[in-house]
């Protein structure tokens, strides 16, 4: 972190605002895609805006204690933390607010923080469904985190740095410099872990409405739920940006701002779409099945990636 200025706080807030809007539009598009696959017309493009404003405008709310308050705050911190410690666009001061030398380690902690916050908050709500769903969610998160961590470890060895900015810099100068091509094994492991973290079809039984209604946020309502919904718009974008940075060359600042944003949207959109493709094509795993899946294939690929990176670099 080179020098602190108050501008950075403003820039971080702007980054979050930008991401919320991008996330809401993305949700609308993805909802539309899901509907079209199911031969429906589907939600309106701006439906997520209505939902989130409606939720913030709820008049009454009930709290169940301190941790119940802090659960959504933790969850939001997880999403916003990834966002403000990850450069959205390389070398653009506005989207680079708090990046520093060891941010990839911090960001990987933030991925887990939200689920932990939900465990504490959902537990205090006292609903048995919350507790059991959080337990299942944490088990699944832990399972896919292992392969993601192995992939990150592999590329940290490869580029000899734990700074996201440095990792992006190392991938500049052509498509073939992307980690996708220089370290495909680590990318494969991480992309499988990506499916687990996006809460889409094969791995979304944690919040499936059939088995355990709604999952961890069962008791959450009003502004508490609105906070969770806000996080749900920024968290997938933040994760996708992280993946674009680590494996798909990041987004460099081009001469034209328009071109920069087009590249940003295309890259994040297509990485996001990977989870949607899998989501609409495959039925759900049970939690035990998904954990078995994660500690079988992605873990194996991740171990190979680490060994290969250590031998090669």
């Amino acid at each position: 972190m080179d020098g602190f200025s108050y501008n950075k706080i403003l820039f971080a807030a702007l980054t979050i605002f930008f991401t919320i809007n991008y996330g809401l539009i993305l949700q609308g598009i993805i909802g539309k895609i899901y509907a079209r696959v199911g031969r429906r017309i589907g939600i309106r493009l701006f439906q997520p805006y209505f939902n989130i404003i409606r939720q913030w405008a709820t008049r009454s709310a009930i709290s169940h204690g301190v941790m119940y308050y802090l659960g959504p705050v933790f969850r939001f911190t997880g999403g916003a933390g990834i966002l403000i410690f990850t450069p959205l666009i390389l070398d653009a001061p506005l989207f680079n607010s708090f990046t520093y030398a060891g941010d990839v380690v911090l960001v990987s902690y933030f991925i887990f923080l939200g689920t932990l916050g939900m465990a504490l908050g959902g537990g205090e709500a006292g609903h048995p469904y919350s507790a059991i769903a959080v337990t299942r969610g944490l088990a699944q998160t832990a399972a896919f985190e292992i392969s993601l961590m192995l992939a990150i470890y592999s590329i940290a060895v490869q580029y000899n740095t734990i700074s996201i900015t440095e990792i992006i810099r190392a991938q500049q100068g052509g498509v073939l410099n992307w980690t996708l091509f220089t370290n495909p094994i680590a990318t494969a492991a991480a992309m499988l872990a990506f499916l687990g973290s996006m809460m889409r079809s094969p791995f979304d039984v944690v919040l499936a409405p059939q088995e355990i209604p709604v999952g961890p946020p069962t008791e959450y309502q009003s502004q508490f739920l609105a906070m969770l919904m806000t996080n749900r718009t920024i968290f997938p974008v933040a994760k996708t940006v992280l993946y674009v940075n680590l494996f798909f060359g990041g987004v460099a600042l081009y001469d034209s701002y328009l071109l920069t944003f087009v590249v940003f949207f295309l890259k994040t959109f297509f990485v996001y779409l990977w989870s949607v493709f899998v989501g609409v094509s495959f039925p759900r795993f049970r939690v035990d099945q998904s954990i078995r899946f994660f500690i079988k294939w992605p873990l194996l690929i991740g171990v190979i990636a680490v060994v290969a990176a250590n031998i090669r670099y």
Partner: peptide
């Protein structure tokens, strides 16, 4: 279902009264 598709009118279903309007 695909035939009536109430989602296009902004209708959604929630499993818990806490989140329903």
């Amino acid at each position: 279902s695909a035939m009536y598709d109430a989602y296009r009118f902004g209708v959604n279903w929630r499993a818990t009264p806490r989140q329903a309007t």
